[in-house]
Amino acid sequence: QVNIAPGSLDKALNQYAAHSGFTLSVDASLTRGKQSNGLHGDYDVESGLQQLLDGSGLQVKPLGNNSWTLEP
């Protein structure tokens, strides 16, 4: 069960990665100043990332080996 409060997208993504045990490689300029609506409930990694990114204009991309990145 994930419980991440709304706020900074950077912070939300870092909390989610730490909670879910995956690696997220992101260029900080992509997420700077963006906000997230947070995340509450049970999600697989990709669904949770998509939910956190909702409205940010960013997309999640798998890199393999439980690693992910973001792209515009």
Rank of each mutant, 00 (worst) to 15 (best):
A12K: 02
Y16D: 00
K34R: 08
D27C: 13
K11E: 15
S67I: 14
Q1F: 15
G64Q: 05
P72N: 07
G7S: 07
A12M: 04
S20F: 15
H40G: 03
N3S: 11
Q35C: 15
T69M: 12
H40D: 08
S36V: 05
E46D: 06
Q15S: 09
T31E: 01
A5K: 10
E71S: 08
L70T: 01
D10P: 04
S47C: 13
G41E: 01
S36F: 04
L49I: 07
L49G: 01
T69N: 04
L53W: 01
G64T: 05
D42T: 14
L39H: 00
Q51C: 13
P62C: 12
A12G: 03
I4A: 02
D42M: 14
K34F: 08
Q51H: 11
V60L: 13
N14S: 14
D42L: 15
A12E: 03
P72R: 10
L53H: 00
T31N: 02
D10I: 13
G21K: 07
L24Q: 01
E46Y: 15
V2M: 08
L30G: 04
L53Y: 00
L58I: 06
N37F: 11
Q51Y: 09
H40N: 12
V60P: 15
Y43E: 03
G55A: 05
L30M: 08
Q59K: 14
H40A: 11
V2W: 10
S67F: 10
L63D: 07
S56R: 01
N65P: 13
S8C: 14
L53Q: 02
D42R: 13
N66L: 06
D42F: 15
L13H: 02
Y43N: 03
Q1E: 11
I4Y: 03
I4T: 02
S56A: 07
L52N: 00
V2F: 10
D42A: 13
D54P: 05
S8L: 09
T69W: 06
H19N: 09
S20L: 15
N65F: 10
P62Y: 15
V2Y: 11
Q59E: 08
L63S: 08
A18D: 07
L52K: 00
V26S: 06
Q35W: 15
N66T: 04
P72T: 09
G33P: 03
N14C: 15
Q51K: 14
Q59G: 08
N3F: 14
P6Q: 07
E71L: 12
D10G: 08
K61M: 07
G33R: 06
S8G: 06
K34Y: 07
G64P: 06
G7A: 07
S25K: 12
N14G: 10
D44S: 11
T31P: 01
S8P: 15
K34P: 05
W68D: 00
F22D: 00
T31A: 03
